[in-house]
């Protein structure tokens, strides 16, 4: 096992543990903290793929922005009133069973696929990705930027205090 393999297994285990933490956390704040940890672990996974660009983006966008945004939303919403268990109609067992079914299917199909037996090649350099993004796909890039702007304006409008009420 090379050092890279060891790193992969370490980060994979870490990310799975943290992801379970998100689901199991009693309080929302804890869930968000677990989310942050998962994102950091995933950034590590990207490093094992040799893509420092993806790792950086992962840290900035998910580790930074999204987590902070979620924390803000948490502060701005009121605590959830505890609902009677009767209302929560689907038991965790049914949900868990269906998810496990899906997981089993996904893993068996993945393991069976011969295309996925290939080893990892060195990731393309950041310069190459940039050339693609700002050359061939520059229009898409601009449209995505526009979309982001529109979404943020929309978010402001949606979340704004209603003047009428």
């Amino acid at each position: 096992m090379s050092a890279r393999d060891v790193l992969f297994y370490a980060y994979a285990a870490l990310s799975i543990v943290c992801a379970v933490g998100i689901v199991r956390a009693r309080r929302l704040v804890h869930a968000v903290v677990w989310l942050f940890a998962t994102m950091v672990a995933l950034a590590g996974i990207y490093l094992t793929l040799g893509s420092e660009l993806m790792a950086g983006v992962q840290l900035f966008v998910y580790g930074g922005a999204v987590t902070v945004l979620a924390l803000f939303a948490l502060v701005l919403t009121r605590p959830v009133p505890e609902l009677p268990a009767r209302l929560s109609s689907a038991s965790p067992w049914v949900a868990g069973a269906s998810v496990l079914l899906l997981l089993a299917t996904l893993i068996t199909t993945t393991v069976d696929a011969t295309e996925l037996r290939a080893g990892v090649r060195p990731a393309p350099s950041t310069a190459l990705v940039a050339a693609e993004l700002f050359g061939r796909y520059v229009v898409l890039f601009e449209v995505a930027g526009l979309l982001l702007t529109v979404a943020l304006v929309g978010a402001i409008i949606v979340a704004r205090k209603d003047d009428a009420s």
């Binding site: 109609s89 689907a90 038991s91 049914v94 949900a95 269906s98 998810v99 079914l101 899906l102 089993a104 299917t105 996904l106 199909t109």
Partner: peptide
């Protein structure tokens, strides 16, 4: 339990059906 109008229960059905389909 299926007819609750609860999106979650529908999602569970969807997930299971997807798994079977795949």
């Amino acid at each position: 339990r299926v007819h609750t109008g609860n999106v979650r229960t529908y999602l569970i059905g969807l997930v299971s059906a997807t798994a079977v389909l795949v």
